[in-house]
């Protein structure tokens, strides 16, 4: 037997858990970003020094580069993931879709750090990619820019986060009422026009969710730039960990807060513009 109050309390447990161990720490991080570093100690204060240091120094260039790289990866991810999700949602049988989606899940489950180590071999001077390039006569000697370069980081980030983007796109596309598309055909719209005026707009909630996943991942990633970028290659993620290595907590907190604020802004836009209903409504029958 359980009273109503006990039941509500039990149901609130996961919310409490997330509030205490995620929201509170994120808030605390913002607070600490205003604290002062005195020698090796951190003392409560209200100073904008960390932000000034971040926005004026080389680290801000890192921030800009991260934004650019994340945008490129997200765009490329969409270009790959959208057609895949489209085919699965609208042109494949249920059974095939299940199998292919499972195949996309498995690499995501295997730690991307391990997969990134593999890329550092696959793309190396003596690696198989270079061997293939030479064997095919595309170049007469191994190509240098494959590894420890923007290209390598791009590949690493894309393969880490693209699989994740397929799912929201598939969810959104699979939920489109096909009668709408058929109606537009009947009304004489050519297929391409139907796509741009019906299917694409209706799939936007999924597109935006995929953008957030791709962007969050590649903007805050720390292992890929370290492994594939080479010495000194910095993106926001590993810039934060290297700030931590010199025990500058307020600066690390300031940088992290800027990253999190960017993400929450994107999330807020999504929440206001699309609402979860249009997206998760299909898998949850209840009204959200």
């Amino acid at each position: 037997m359980m009273g109503k109050v006990a039941r509500k309390t039990l149901l609130a447990l996961p919310l409490l858990f997330t509030a205490v161990f995620l929201l509170l720490p994120l808030g605390l991080t913002v607070v600490i970003s205003f604290w002062e570093k005195v020698g090796l100690r951190v003392v409560p204060a209200f100073t904008l020094r960390s932000y000034a240091e971040f926005f004026s120094g080389v680290r801000f260039a890192v921030h800009e580069r991260s934004l650019l790289v994340a945008a490129e990866v997200t765009l490329a991810g969409l270009l790959f993931a959208y057609p895949i999700a489209y085919v699965l949602a609208l042109r494949a049988s249920r059974q095939t879709t299940r199998v292919v989606l499972l195949l996309f899940t498995i690499p995501f489950l295997v730690n991307h750090v391990i997969r990134t180590f593999s890329w550092s071999y696959l793309l190396s001077r003596s690696g198989p990619v270079n061997e293939a390039v030479v064997a095919l006569g595309l170049a007469d000697r191994p190509v240098d820019w494959l590894l420890y370069s923007d290209f390598a980081v791009f590949i690493g980030l894309l393969t880490s986060y693209m699989p994740f983007m397929v799912f929201p796109l598939w969810l959104a596309l699979a939920g489109i009422d096909r009668r709408l598309v058929e109606a537009s055909w009947l009304l004489g719209a050519p297929p391409l026009a139907s796509f741009f005026r019906i299917t694409l707009p209706l799939s936007l909630p999924g597109v935006f969710a995929a953008v957030i996943f791709g962007f969050v991942g590649s903007f805050g990633e720390s292992a890929v730039p370290i492994i594939l970028g080479g010495t000194g290659y910095q993106l926001m993620g590993n810039a934060i960990t290297s700030t931590l290595d010199v025990i500058n907590f307020p600066l690390a907190a300031a940088m992290s807060s800027v990253v999190v604020a960017t993400m929450l802004l994107l999330l807020a836009i999504w929440y206001v513009a699309f609402d979860l209903r249009s997206f998760l409504g299909k898998i949850l029958r209840w009204r959200l």
């Binding site: 969050v216 931590l244 999190v260 993400m263």
Partner: peptide, 10 residues
């Protein structure tokens, strides 16, 4: 929606 490093740091 929170990058891993930020979550770890916080």
């Amino acid at each position: 929606f929170i990058p891993g490093v930020s979550m770890g740091l916080s």
